[in-house]
Computed example of a mutant assay.
Amino acid sequence: MKILTTKQAAEMLSISVSTLRALVRAGEIAYVPRGVGTVRQHMGFDATDIEDFIKRSKVRLVPRVEPTHTPKTGSFLANRVARLAAKAARKTLK
């Protein structure tokens, strides 16, 4: 088990140290307390925890699915133009 420093773990994730600390505060990544920090606790990170976080964070895009229905009326833009024309016609009648 290799313990990484905060900077090494952030570099492994390609994020800043402050972002890494935010992930720790959110409970997304576990850390190992190191030393006796008085102002800011020193954190160590297990390399396997970082790798597990990467695996959990992977996103797979789903291919776009075409709609199975066709609109009964024209497109959104055509409907909008028709509504605006009807609104203008009502104004001229007043």
Rank of each mutant, 00 (worst) to 15 (best):
Lys2Glu: 14
Lys2Tyr: 04
Ile3Ser: 02
Leu4Glu: 05
Leu4Tyr: 01
Leu4Pro: 03
Thr6Leu: 07
Thr6Tyr: 01
Thr6Asn: 02
Lys7Trp: 06
Lys7Ser: 12
Ala9Gly: 03
Ala9Phe: 00
Ala10Tyr: 00
Met12Thr: 14
Ser14Asn: 15
Ser14Gly: 09
Ser14Ala: 12
Ile15Cys: 05
Ile15His: 01
Ser16Glu: 12
Ser16Val: 10
Ser16Leu: 13
Val17Ala: 04
Val17Lys: 06
Val17Arg: 06
Thr19Tyr: 03
Arg21Tyr: 09
Arg21Asn: 11
Ala22Asp: 09
Leu23Met: 15
Glu28Asp: 15
Glu28Phe: 01
Ile29Trp: 00
Ile29Asp: 01
Ile29Pro: 02
Ile29Cys: 01
Ile29Leu: 06
Ala30Met: 11
Ala30Leu: 12
Ala30Asp: 12
Val32His: 03
Val32Glu: 12
Pro33Tyr: 00
Arg34Thr: 15
Arg34Gly: 06
Arg34Trp: 07
Arg34His: 09
Gly35Phe: 00
Gly35Thr: 07
Gly35Arg: 03
Val36Thr: 14
Val36Lys: 15
Gly37Asp: 06
Thr38Arg: 11
Thr38His: 06
Val39Trp: 05
Val39His: 07
Val39Lys: 13
Arg40Trp: 02
Gln41Met: 14
His42Pro: 08
Met43Trp: 02
Met43Thr: 04
Met43Tyr: 05
Phe45Ile: 08
Phe45Thr: 03
Asp46Lys: 12
Asp46Val: 11
Ala47Phe: 01
Thr48Tyr: 03
Asp49Glu: 14
Asp49Lys: 05
Ile50Thr: 01
Glu51Gly: 01
Phe53Gly: 01
Ile54Leu: 12
Lys55Asp: 12
Lys55Pro: 05
Lys55Ser: 08
Lys58Phe: 02
Lys58Met: 14
Val59Trp: 01
Val59Asp: 03
Arg60Asn: 07
Leu61Phe: 03
Val62Ile: 15
Pro63Gly: 04
Arg64Trp: 08
Val65Gln: 13
Val65Ile: 15
Glu66Ala: 13
Glu66Lys: 12
Glu66Thr: 13
Thr68Lys: 15
Thr70Met: 13
Lys72His: 11
Lys72Arg: 15
Thr73Ile: 14
Ser75Val: 05
Phe76Val: 13
Phe76Glu: 11
Leu77Ile: 14
Ala78Ile: 09
Asn79Pro: 04
Asn79Trp: 02
Asn79Ile: 10
Arg80Gly: 08
Arg80Leu: 15
Val81Ala: 10
Val81Trp: 02
Ala82Gln: 10
Arg83Phe: 06
Arg83Leu: 13
Arg83Gln: 12
Leu84Asp: 10
Ala85Met: 12
Ala85Thr: 15
Ala88Trp: 02
Ala88Tyr: 02
Ala89Tyr: 04
Ala89Trp: 04
Arg90Ile: 09
Lys91Asp: 10
Thr92Ser: 11
Thr92Asn: 08
Thr92Ala: 14
Leu93Val: 14
Lys94Asp: 14
Lys94Cys: 09
